[in-house]
Design a protein around this nucleic acid. Structure first.
Length: 936
DNA sequence: ACCTCCCGCCACTTC
DNA sequence: GAAGTGGCGGGAGGT
């Protein structure tokens, strides 16, 4: 969407974080003007107010404003400079009014329609990139936004709440949210779909429909039955479904969250995802939502209120192009309904496919495998996160300072729990993390040194201190790195990552058990030879994931993958060095190993996946071994959660693209591909990887029954290399939890991150991030030892590490070496996966499923033409539509976007599922419904 | 008359 | 007590 473009510009770098909302107001106005299609406010904003006094740009207010809008940096500057407070803002407005003629002013005051939430949401979305790069600072200051958009903050809450339900934003603090864009969208949708399936929404929908039908027939008995049937599922619904890594924020919001728009929004989305014709009428949705709360009281007022809220949600979802309005025509008349136009969600993939599973499973598992209640992030994550994190002594001081600074800087997060706050911040700010790391690293290092000198060194401390640098560097990456570029969102991931990754695992060879090899960070530094060739530079969060690859003992691992992973890591690093200038997101590189690991973890969590059990065990073993204690439970879950979602996205692609390859491999490749293919410009693509490095796909099968996260190792190695002092200078990051065999696990508190983050706000972020785990792992191998077959300096470390690892594990003969294929190639993104293209306007829904049913839903296009016939209810025997009719989508449809296809494509699977669930016992009379699309 | 849904009151939270 | 959040529903604009 156009939003993306604008977003890219508008999106502010982290620096913006400090920006004062008010100050920007002037700027914001200008921005608004640009953005607002409707607004007649093209006028130049008040000069004096718009630009901070000292601001050099002041003279050409308009021009500057525009520029500032386009240039985050400028805006940031302005913000920093600006001291304006509310009064200023107000004045600015007044000035604006003055400048405008009466007519203009009136025009500026949008009509009711122009004030619609949907439109507002569009403007809001236009301010941020769909796929913000890690480097980009995507903080959302509600005050600023409200001013810029010239709306009351209350409205912004409506938008933000819905976006939050999709994990497109998360609350960082009072008045501040972090913008993730669509990075997490797929994950979220998958999770929601799973939850929806678990909640048997399909059944509920059918029950409600049946009820209605019965009601029409004056059959009250059936209605009662239906109600009862529906009732059982209701229980869990009120919980807010969170993604791993995102949980803290959401949970922290407040006690009202359960009733919040967020939950409603999620449920509403679930309804679409689980229903076969992905059309949900407001009435049904309202009833289900109400039903969950109280089935009995469907009183009109409540129903009305629910409908109102659903409109609010629908407007936002429509702006996101996830749904579009249609009308369902029944005998009674036509009812407002919405049709899912968002990306196809392949929830089952995870379960079905172990490989992909990793990714998909993680998120889904967390949400799905567990009861809805369990899913509630509140219950699950917060504690873990906190518990797991232990603040390194050396950091305490720094942290305190930072925290104090932070308080000064911005209001503390309103979120209830302080702990949550820490977590939130950590998780929420991947990019920030990187920045912070860069900023803090030196400080931390110094402090750590001092502390070391003074304090008695426990082995752990030593390790930590030594590893700090590397760790710091790594973590951000790790977090962000989450294999999927899309997943890059650091926020959510970080916390988990820390947990999971941070533990440094010592290589242990369990003959039969798959395991991850982790080296102690300290070792890594010590042992690792710094390779100059690898220059760690501020890189937009490299996607390097610190994954421990756990492979299925049985599964074959193509060396290529491993190689690929390495290559990726290398490539990512290299690319980083090369591309840094560009600020390309190249850094985002996914590592197969991680995916694998994640997947395995996910599998563990997800009992449903049977194939992976062996993997799971292996993973557990790994964790156990690495940590020395049973950390796996928590960490695994957490890590799994984070990873899964990310992976899931790729999984989808993988499934489509390469089934022949080992799933793990596929995942990796896909990720790589995506990563390679993507540019910033392509942010629109679902998968955010701006730059992907193509890794040679040659499949070398690793005969050993073990899956070793070579890629990770490689990464690690590289990272480890970077971890050297030189590197340390470059990036610093908060620690993650470290586990040493001896010391055990040293958790780093989320607060640390937070603390670290604060400084970052001020400082230009360094982006190089390396997963701690990777670092840890890498260190073991000396670069010298490793370089056996490395044509590229860059690659060498990874490959060497890989070989070393393999040999060490006995997976490969000592003499044998595996070389990573570091071929960097841009990979074209499959159209399908490109979630959104700004430009797209009309999408044709190609195939609607036609069921052999008496009653079908007719889909009408905007013109009132029936474009498709859709079975109102899922029939047991779906027949693929022969008539695929196109429905013109009025809004910002992304042509290539997954949406069009997705919904349709997904429908079959959904129908299947739905059939299984819903049809199993219930027979729902089908009525003939007509669905017509309305313009939004 | 009904559909939409903006608007803002006000309760609840958090600081 | 102030500010931030956001539930809630009156009621107005649209159709």
């Amino acid at each position: 969407m156009g939003s993306e473009e604008k977003e890219n510009h508008s999106s502010k770098p982290q620096q913006n974080v400090l920006k004062t909302p008010l100050k920007q107001a002037a700027t914001s106005h200008s921005v608004l003007t640009e953005i607002q299609p409707d607004s007649g406010l093209l006028t130049t904003p008040p000069k004096s107010k718009e630009v901070p006094h000292g601001d050099p740009w002041t003279p050409t207010a308009n021009l500057k404003i525009l520029i500032s809008a386009a240039s985050p940096e400028i805006r940031n500057r302005e913000q920093k400079k600006g001291l304006s407070d509310r009064s200023e803002t107000v004045e600015t407005k007044h000035c604006l009014h003055e400048h405008l003629s009466g007519d203009e002013y009136e025009r500026s005051q949008p009509s009711r329609k122009e004030k619609s939430l949907g439109l507002l949401c569009h403007r809001f979305l236009a301010r941020y990139p769909n796929y913000p790069s890690i480097a980009e600072n995507s903080d959302i200051c509600l005050d600023e936004v409200a001013e810029e958009l010239n709306v009351e903050r209350r409205r912004i809450y409506d938008i933000v709440n819905v976006l939050e339900s999709l994990h497109m934003v998360s609350r960082l603090a009072k008045n501040r949210y972090a913008w993730y864009g669509r990075h997490n969208l797929n994950r979220t949708l998958q999770t929601l779909k799973k939850v929806g399936e678990e909640n048997k929404y399909t059944q509920q929908i059918e029950m409600i429909k049946k009820r209605e039908y019965d009601f029409e027939l004056d059959n009250d008995k059936n209605e009662e039955m239906a109600t009862k049937l529906v009732g059982p599922n209701e229980h869990s619904e009120m919980c807010f479904v969170e993604l791993p890594g995102m949980e803290f924020r959401a949970a922290s919001v407040n006690s009202r969250k359960d009733k919040s728009l967020r939950v409603m929004s999620q449920k509403f989305v679930m309804l679409f995802l689980v229903s076969t014709p992905q059309i949900v009428s407001l009435e049904v949705a309202a009833r289900i939502l109400i039903g969950e709360d109280h089935v009995e009281d469907l009183d009109k007022s409540k129903f009305k209120t629910k409908i109102r809220r659903l409109y609010d949600i629908a407007n936002v979802l429509s702006s996101l192009e996830l749904i579009k309005k249609v009308h369902v025509k029944e005998e009674r008349g036509r009812k407002p309904a919405f049709k899912w136009t968002g990306p196809e969600v392949l929830p089952d993939t995870q379960d079905t496919k172990p490989l992909t599973t990793t990714t998909s499973l993680v998120p889904s598992n967390s949400a799905k495998s567990k009861s809805p209640k369990e899913q509630c992030s509140k219950n699950l994550f917060p504690l873990r996160g906190k518990q797991n994190f232990t603040r390194h002594p050396s950091l305490i001081k720094l942290v305190k300072t930072i925290e104090s600074d932070r308080r000064k800087i911005h209001s503390a997060p309103s979120s209830p729990s302080k702990t949550s706050t820490h977590n939130d911040q950590k998780s929420s700010l991947p990019s920030k993390m990187a920045q912070l790391a860069a900023i803090c690293k030196p400080q931390i290092e110094e402090q750590s040194r001092e502390l070391k000198m003074k304090l008695t060194r426990s082995p752990l401390e030593c390790k930590l201190s030594s590893s700090d640098e590397s760790l710091l560097k790594c973590e951000p990456n790790t977090t962000s790195s989450c294999q999927n570029p899309s997943l890059v969102q650091p926020l959510g991931v970080l916390p988990l990552i820390h947990n999971s990754v941070s533990p440094v695992m010592l290589p242990q060879t369990h003959s039969a058990i798959s395991y991850a090899i982790y080296l102690h960070p300290s070792q890594a530094q010590t042992v690792t030879t710094y390779s100059p060739s690898f220059t760690l530079q501020s890189v937009p969060c490299p996607n390097v994931t610190r994954t421990k690859s756990v492979l299925d003992g049985n599964s074959k691992i193509p060396l290529s993958q491993m190689t690929t992973g390495q290559g990726d890591s290398n490539a990512s690093e290299v690319s980083v060095a090369n591309l840094m200038a560009k600020e390309t997101q190249v850094t985002k590189i996914e590592f197969t190993p991680e995916k694998c690991l994640k997947r395995s973890q996910a599998l563990q969590e997800n009992s449903s996946i049977k194939k992976c059990k062996s993997d799971e065990k292996s993973l557990e073993d790994v964790y156990t071994v690495s940590n020395g204690h049973s950390v796996k439970g928590e960490r695994t879950s957490s890590s799994t959660l984070h990873l899964k979602p990310e992976i899931s996205n790729f999984q989808e692609e993988n499934q489509h693209k390469s089934e022949k390859l080992d799933q793990n491999v596929e995942c990796c490749f896909d990720h790589e591909r995506k990563g390679l293919s993507e540019d910033k410009s392509r942010s629109s693509t679902t998968q955010e990887m701006p730059v992907a490095f193509a890794v040679s796909t040659h499949e070398t099968l690793f005969s050993s029954g073990y899956l070793i996260p070579l890629a990770q190792c490689s990464q690690n190695s590289n990272e480890a290399i970077f971890s050297n002092k030189e590197n340390s200078g470059i990036c610093s990051l908060p620690h993650v939890t470290y586990s040493s065999p001896i010391a055990g696990v040293i958790p780093v508190t989320a607060s640390e991150f937070t603390a670290v983050n604060i400084p970052a706000f001020h400082v230009t972020p360094l982006k190089l991030m390396v997963p701690p785990s990777s670092i840890a792992a890498a260190p073991v191998v000396n670069s010298s030892c490793l370089n056996s077959s490395h044509s590229n300096p860059v690659q060498n470390p990874s490959s060497s590490i890989l070989n070393f690892t393999l040999q060490h594990l006995g997976l490969i003969p000592a003499g044998m070496q595996v070389s990573p294929n570091p071929v960097l190639q841009p990979v074209p993104i499959s159209p399908k996966q490109e979630s959104v293209s700004p430009v797209s306007e009309n999408v044709t829904l190609q195939q609607e499923r036609v069921f052999k049913t008496e009653s079908n839903i007719t889909v009408y296009d905007l013109n009132g033409k029936s474009s498709a016939v859709i079975p109102l209810q899922q029939s047991r025997i779906p027949v693929k539509s022969k008539e695929s009719q196109s429905v013109t989508e009025s809004f910002f449809r992304t042509p290539g976007g997954p949406n069009a296809i997705s919904s349709l494509s997904s429908s079959p699977s959904n129908s299947d599922c739905a059939d299984g669930i819903s049809h199993g016992n219930l027979f729902v009379p089908q009525r003939k419904l007509e669905v017509s699309e309305d313009q939004l």
